[in-house]
């Protein structure tokens, strides 16, 4: 990983976006959204995490090997979450 040196201007802009999104997500928690708080919060979280990953962690200029590790971890996380949760959601025999 020795891509181009990210200018400080980029970091400041990303930081401003992250702070703005944080204020939005906290504001949304004051609305009466009932069960939708988690969904909205996690979606905003995904955007924030992508900004951190792409710019602060330099994924934008990273090697294919680094991308492979990132995508593999997300893929495994997907298997872990989707298969486990779908099992629990479709199982009504055991009370837990």
């Amino acid at each position: 990983m020795s891509g181009p040196i990210t200018p400080t201007r980029t970091y400041y802009r990303v930081f401003a976006a992250l702070i703005a999104l944080t204020l939005v997500t906290v504001y949304v928690s004051f609305l009466e959204l009932g069960p939708w708080h988690t969904t909205v919060g996690v979606l905003i979280g995904v955007v924030k995490a992508s900004l951190v990953g792409l710019f602060f962690m330099h994924l934008l200029h990273s090697s294919k090997a680094s991308w492979l590790a990132v995508l593999a971890s997300l893929f495994w996380l997907g298997i872990l979450m989707v298969l486990t949760i779908s099992d629990y959601l479709t199982r009504h025999i055991l009370e837990y």
């Binding site: 906290v26 949304v28 928690s29 009466e32 988690t38 909205v40 919060g41 979280g45």
Partner: peptide
């Protein structure tokens, strides 16, 4: 969002 913002 998962811990703090899940409730209103």
């Amino acid at each position: 969002p998962l811990l703090y913002l899940t409730g209103t």
